[in-house]
Design a protein around this nucleic acid. Sequence first.
RNA 1: UGCCGGAUGGUGUAAUGGUAGCACAGCAGACUCUGGAUCUGUGAGUCUAGGUUCGAAUCCUAGUCCGGCAACCA
Length: 562
Amino acid sequence: MNTEKATPGRHFIRQIIDEDNRTGKWGGRVVTRFPPEPNGYLHIGHAKSVCLNFGMAREYGGVCHLRMDDTNPVKEEMEYIEAITEDVRWLGFDWGEHFYYASDYFEQMYEYAVELIKQGKAYVCALSSEEWKEYRGVPERPGRESPHRNRPVDENLDLFARMRAGEFPNGSLVLRAKMDMASPNLHMRDLVLYRILHARHPHTGDLWCIYPTYDYAHCLEDSIEGITHSICTLEFEVHRPPYDWILDQLGIHHPQQIEFARLNLTYTVMSKRKLLELVKEKHVQGWDDPRLPTVRGLRRRGVTPASIRNFCERVGVTKYDSLTDVALLEHCIREDLNKQAPRALAVLNPVKLVIENYPEDAEENFEAVNNPEDPSAGTRKIPFCRELYIDRDDFMEDPPPKYFRLAPGREVRLRYAGLVTCTDVAKDAATGEIREIRCRWDPDSRGGAAPDGRKVKGTIHWVSARHAGDAEVRLYDRLFTVEEPDAEADYRAHLNPDSLKTVAAKVEPALMEAGPGTHWQFERVGYFYADHVDSRAGSPVFNRTLPLRDSWAKSRERSAER
RNA sequence: UGCCGGAUGGUGUAAUGGUAGCACAGCAGACUCUGGAUCUGUGAGUCUAGGUUCGAAUCCUAGUCCGGCAACCA
């Protein structure tokens, strides 16, 4: 367990900050921001960015702002603003009083635009978007100047004011920066600063009918907030020149934009479009479906914030567009849950086991350890009687070599209870299905110890038929059957048909009281989460977070391949 | 075909001119009242070709391959 707090890698962003601090570039200040557009739910890729931005601020004694980048009212909604805020907080980060809306700066941005016009650096253009496509041209050759490029300043000022006043319909005019029509970077070819959008904004309401574009707005948001390190993903690299250009023209505080590679994970998709399709087309049950890589999905799956943070630290930060094996995430989840989750006994696929030499009317309690990784978690009593349930997988009539569990004539340990030997098995005459397994137990092994020190390889879990509760258990598996669904012609053709199986389980009494939102390890089975949406007192619903590592199953798979 | 970025074991990352290291995954073993956890061991890598240098993953040159960019999205 030496993974925790291993020396954090000096990734390139840390190196930049170190260098800035050394030269005194920002006077030792570190101000970052996480600027989501409130048009969708956060996923684990966003979580990487959240961890990076808040993480750097925390590490260097700075601050990180949470800012809604709400410059496009037709796509953004209040619902998302609340969800994002909640998710960032759930991930374990605190922005203090630094919660902002880009839209709060609209007036200031407008004034800066007027200034650019006065400087002769911006003009009102009447070209339609189709016409502009023509003028802008292709990367290989310079574009042509807009016929409105040299409109007099006064006229620009007048038109821009009237755009704001609502005199023109959507799309009729835009405000453009006068940059460089010959630039090989298309984003430097007189990009649009403002467009007309007669739309109600979730935060500013009907105050505006012109809205700034990303390129214009983002650098100003960063500048106004005094951001020092503006961290974003690789695809914004080509937007850095306009970012720098605008701030240079205005001569205002100029943060440094730094790009890093976004997170990609195997066996899932991460794009907003695909996530939306999965939800809309009902391939999953909602944005918080435990099979989704959304923050809410992971939460409902039973993934802890700590394991997500640890994972984000361990994937590192580079400019290389990589595909991270989901096994690393799973490792981080198990590592955390192994330490935290109390153990319990639950039988997912029950079959009855009768102990012939245990009296019908008797019962007793055995003491079980709550968490072998954490002695302070204490112990609990689990009831035992003549009739139990065990898992069907733990019995085989004709077992293969190295099968340590129950079989005719074989002895196994019932976890915490004692040793039993299988004497007989009753089957359904018609189907051949096993109805009941009969055993005799060794009273000297009461509690589980082998009385004479004899070796009993197998230990299986069980619940008392008389005392067991019924619980719905949802067995989740990866959503896709291929490592890289994004690389497929139609990612939907590779959905895993078995990504969810629901079973009726028999569980020990302690689990019937499991509070919604609690994490458990069902011994020998996996980690489970008492669903905070569907679980009710007395009728718990458990979502499987992950199965336990299973070297037996693995060796079976291997021999099956041969 | 223009510009920008990138390339280290299967995967992710470190080494910033001086022994290519770590983690995940894999394999083998030890231990175990969870076939869990833990512990030990182990295979596997610098895109290619030149050059500079006592010495190159690192610097230079040329090439190869991969990603991004042509919304009035962010």
